[in-house]
Structures are given as C-alpha cells and as structure tokens.
Write a protein that binds this DNA or RNA. Structure first.
Length: 582
RNA sequence: CGGGGCGUGGCUCAGCUGGUAGAGCGCUCGCUUCGGGUGCGAGAGAUCGUGGGUUCAAAUCCCACCGCCCCGACCA
C-alpha cells in the first residue's frame, strides 16, 4: 500500500479528551476518530488491526468446531421480557421504539436472541453440542465512557454460545473454550492471565476473565505467589487470619467522642490519630427490600457480590439515607453496631434490621472505633461480644493487601489488568427462562446446558497498544500489526530508489506479507517519525546512500540498531521474518 | 445523579477589564532542503457550541439549553 494514497491522517498532538496512552496513540496514528461520547470511527489502519484480531479469534474458534453466525443488533422487547432482563438491565440497555410503537433494544449481548434461535431449530440431543459465535457491534449505554475504545459505549465483541445435553459436556467444553482463549491471546502477542471472576447477578456459576497485564488496567488482580491462585479482587476469596486473643487488661470501655462534621473513616482516623484498621465501617443495604447491616474493617472495602451471595439475595442495593436515619437515628457517617437493633423505632418508614453480617477480619479488631449512632459523634473502645454481636461472620470484603490466599493462606500479591475476554458457564439460566429444551435419548424433555464466551475485540486492540508502546509510538506484535513492514523511500522521486523500493515491496507481497510504503514527497525525518508512531514491526529504508553499496537498511521497531541487508538476500531474509509471525 | 472544568479554522491553544478574530501544527501553490517533524514566501479555511437578553456595539457581560472532559456515585 502506498502511503501517498492511504487515508492515514496522523497527528502531532492528541486531542485533549484522549485520556490514556492507547487512545492518544490510536488518535495520533490515524486509527480512530471520535464521533460522540463513547462512539468511535475506525479508519483504515485501525480496521486492519481489528480484522487481524478478528481472524485469529475466528480461526481458533473454527478449530474447535465453532460456527459463525450473525445476529441482529436491534432486538425485540418481547424476548428480553421472557428472561426478565428488560427490567433488570437498567439504563445501560439502549431502548428504541419503531414507527408502530413497538419496542426494541440495541444488543448489549445476545443470549436471548441466540437461545431463541436454537430453541426454534434444535430439538434433539443428537444435534448437541453446538457452538455458535458471531462478531457483532454491541451497545452499552455506560454512565461514564472513558479510556477511548477500552470503555466505549459502542464496541465490537465476539460472543460465542455453546449448548449441551449435559452438565458434564458443558464443563468439558468450558475447558475447550478456555484453552482456545489462551491460544487466541497468545497468538495476539499479549501478556495475559486468566483469573477467576465473579459471574455477577445475572451470570451463571463459573467464570474466568482473561486479563491483559497492564498498570493502567481498570481491574485489580489478586495473585498467590504460593499456589498460583489468581482472581479478580472483586471475586477473590480470602482465608481468615489466625485469631488473636484479646488481653482483658487492655480492653477499654466504650467512650463517646465528638467528631463534628467528620464522617469518613479517613477523616475520623486522622482526627483521632488512630489507624483505619481500628475502625468498624458500618453500611446499610436493602437486600430484596429488607434492611441489612454489613460491618467491615475501616481500611477494607465491602464487596457487594460477596455480601449478596452470603445473604442469598437476588437484589442488593445501598440503602438510601432515610433508612440510616430510621434505623440508626443519625446520618450515614455516624452509624455504628453498638445497640443497633434496639434503636429501631416501629412505625418509621422502614422495617427492622433483618440481619447484621460482619467481615471475618473484625474478629481481630479490639478497642474498635465506629459511629455512635448519634450525629457528629463516634465511639471508641468497641469490643466484639461485649459491645456488639453480629448475627454471622463471613468473608465480605474486597481482597486487599495483607489478605491471604484461600487455597494456601500465603499473602496475596497484586497486579492490574485489562479484561479482554470472559468465559461463563451459564448452566440452564437462559434455557429455562426461554424454554430452550431438547429431547434426550429417553424421550425426556430437558433444558439445554449453556456456556457463553466473550472477547472484546476493540478492547483487545487497545490493550495491545497499552502493552506495546514507547515514547515514540506504538510497537505492534507482528501477528496483529496492520502491516508487517514500513517501507521508507528516502527521496522517493529518485529513479533508482523508486525501483528498488518497488522491488522490495513486491518481494514482501510474494511472501504473503504487506508493506506500508512511504512514497510521499516528504523529508526523511517526517517519514521516520510517522513510522515510529504507527509502529509496524519491521522497517526497511531505501536510499541512494545504501543503494550505492547494493544494500538497504533493516530495523526492528522494538530495537535501537539498524542492520544492512544486501539487496539480493532480501527474499531470504523475508522468509526468516515470516516464520516469526507464528 | 452530585462536585469541578471546558466549548474559538482539521489538531493544540491565545484573545474574554466589550469596538466585529489570532498563533503554531496541518492543508494548497511556488522556491528551497533531503537520514530523525528543513527554511522562505504566497494563499485557502471560523455562522467564536445553540437560543435569548443587556448594549450604539458581544467571542468577551447575563440567563437558559446542548455537547465534551475529569472526580465520585453507578455498572459486571
């Protein structure tokens, strides 16, 4: 491809609203442009990368007998009503109305549609298992889109769904897809880690996220250096710390202290000159409408997923301010566990506390600090057993520094990652609600067992850049680079240079690879800067300077030094490079 | 939804104590230069986010709306 005719508008400076490295580089390298908040255009260079990733995904899924389909992006409300997600999904689901006032949504995912398709035309165990997948635009109306195409509203996702006659078969296929995912991301040249993930309120019972390791990732991963356990901190279980015995002589009495206007743990800790680990954080939730109190250590963050699971609630939301007032008799920042159940006044606009659940870590907090259930007041010297008694203890905090691995009790290490794929074992959640049944060999009607597997294709591209760049620009892994070569002609109007360049370009094509040939009438500096920015893996420079020795110059994007190639050994060198792409 | 910030050529930004719009980059043309964003000259390109108001006069002051960004809440 001749650069002089290629639609590749590079920029010296990134737009002001580009908020992380990969978007800045994608803008500057002419891969994407923004049309609206969270909505992007993909220019030719960007699309080529997207297609490279797509092809790798496609080939690995086809290898495990996946069959590609294409599903509608506009989906009727009725199907979403059948699974109940029309109500559950909330504002993230973009809803549309047609001229006849029929309601639709723009697909955020496709479980409903695919399950509907399968239930219509698959009815026998003889037709199972089946693995269907598609590449499709998805739209999720994120509250706050950010980081360019890493968290956009419209994005390209590969979604795959498998249907099975038995749970064992679904489990076996989960493993097959898991391995396929490992191959896919390995082939893309990414450093990644599959981690255990929470399947969320509408997911199934088993899930992994594939994380591209990057400091800028939004997800935090807990890793055990001992046994290799790895999980999203939102999912990671923690072992209980060994219990310590309180020294009875050191136990203080409960004492109230005024803390006017200070309601965060951080502020109160600073004010009282105490460690946040001494604090008992008090939070109220509504679990299916019933008020619930959760206690975690001051330096810990409550994990709503864990809490929901412990309570066994379908729906869990933070309690509004008036619930705090009604139960604790004070604003949110001053509620505490001491005597909390006795404070409830019947007739207020809420029911009494259903249960009080404390995090395991609180067993080792002595002389704790918490709200005194009185405005502008905290209490110190709070001790478990003597001053408060939770109904139960559980692991309900987000795994953090100092926590121990659930498998081998070694302290966790932490790293950050970008979630580029997720696998779910769905079970029969959707097949039951959508009545996607089959007849087994005993003529018994059974719901199919399902799995679903997603890859954020657009996000994978951004993640690759996040992982591969330097101060000058992108450094593509060869397998997903938009072109393999930057071919730079210095003084492209020079006849000998033009001819030699054309010959090398053909030689590259002859190997089934492609070059982006910078034939523009530009100064060398401009061409080198653009080449570094675009970041193709290999660069060949043709100039009269080297041509007079019968040579051209070769340089890898990731390396500093350039080599000389004899013109007649170019085809052989290209063959060697081609072998590297695998 | 709460708090903060910003909307001026394609991009980055100046002008904002009111007087009818500027720079750099990019683009076009000419010359120059040719191994790390050459130099010079000439040019094209802007309803100053939208609507209303104040005023002889509004990019500039006031009001409303829209859009965008950041922090948080939210979400899996």
């Amino acid at each position: 491809m001749k650069l002089s005719k290629y639609f590749l508008p590079t920029l010296r400076e990134a737009p002001q609203d580009a908020d992380n490295v990969s978007v800045k580089l994608m803008f500057r390298a002419g891969m994407i442009r923004k049309l609206a908040s969270g909505i992007y255009e993909w220019l030719p260079l960007g699309l080529r990368v997207l297609q490279k990733v797509e092809n790798i995904v496609r080939s690995e899924l086809n290898r495990v007998d996946g069959q590609e389909v294409r599903l509608p992006v506009i989906q009727p409300k009725e199907l979403w009503m059948e699974t109940g997600r029309w109500q559950i999904y909330g504002k993230e689901l973009l809803r549309l109305t047609d001229r006849k006032d029929s309601e639709f949504c723009f697909a955020p995912t496709a479980e409903e549609v695919i399950t509907n398709m399968v239930r219509r035309d698959v009815s026998s165990y003889r037709q199972l298992p089946i693995l269907l997948y598609q590449f499709g635009l998805k739209f999720r109306d994120e509250i706050r889109p950010r980081y360019g195409v890493m968290r956009s509203r419209e994005f390209l996702m590969k979604d795959a769904y498998s249907f099975h006659a038995s749970d064992e078969d679904a489990q076996k296929w989960y493993g097959i897809l898991y391995s396929a995912y490992e191959k896919i991301f390995t082939r893309c040249g990414l450093t990644f880690k599959p981690v255990e993930a929470d399947s969320g309120p509408i997911g199934g019972n088993h899930s992994h996220e594939f994380m591209v390791i990057a400091d800028t990732g939004e997800a935090e991963i807990a890793l055990c250096p001992g046994c290799g356990y790895a999980a999203n901190t939102e999912k990671a279980e923690v072992s209980e710390q060994p219990a310590r015995q309180a020294d009875p002589s050191k136990l203080q009495p409960v004492k109230e202290v005024p803390t006017p206007g200070l309601y965060t743990v951080e502020d109160v800790a600073k004010f009282l000159k105490m460690n946040p680990k001494q604090f008992i954080k008090t939070l109220f939730f509504l679990a299916d409408g019933e008020p619930v109190m959760a206690l975690v250590r001051g330096d810990h963050e409550l994990n709503e997923n864990k809490l929901r699971r412990v309570i066994g609630a379908a729906n869990l939301e933070k309690a509004p301010q008036h619930i705090y007032e009604a139960i604790a008799g004070c604003p949110a920042g001053f509620a505490g566990p001491v005597g909390i159940k006795e404070r409830y006044v019947p007739g207020k606009d809420t029911r009494p506390l259903k249960t009080v659940i404390a995090d395991n870590a609180l067993k080792n907090v002595f002389n704790g600090v918490s709200g005194a259930n009185k405005n502008d007041t905290h209490a110190t010297g709070i001790n478990l057993g003597r001053d408060y008694n939770p109904d139960s203890f559980a692991d309900i905090h987000v795994a953090a520094a100092g926590d121990l691995c659930p498998k081998c009790a070694k302290p966790f290490g932490f790293t950050r990652g970008i979630e580029v794929g997720q696998t779910f074992k769905l079970g029969t959640k959707y097949s039951k609600s959508l009545k996607c049944n089959f007849l087994d060999e005993h003529q018994k009607e059974m719901p199919m067992v399902m799995g679903c597997y997603g890859i954020g294709v657009t996000r994978t591209v951004a993640a690759a850049i996040e992982q591969g760049h330097d101060e000058w620009g992108i450094i593509w892994p060869p397998a997903i680079a938009p072109f393999e070569f930057s071919l730079i002609s210095i003084e492209s109007e020079d006849k000998a240079v033009a001819e030699a360049s054309a010959a090398i370009c053909s030689a590259i094509q002859a190997e089934g690879m492609e070059a982006l040939w910078d034939d523009r009438d530009e100064r060398p500096g401009v061409k080198f800067k653009d080449a570094d920015l675009i970041g193709l893996p290999w660069r060949v420079v043709v100039s009269s300077k080297t041509l007079k020795d019968g040579e051209c110059e070769f340089k890898r994007r990731a390396e500093k030094t350039a080599l000389r190639w004899k013109l007649d050994e170019v085809p052989a060198k290209l063959k060697e490079l081609k072998a590297e792409i695998k």
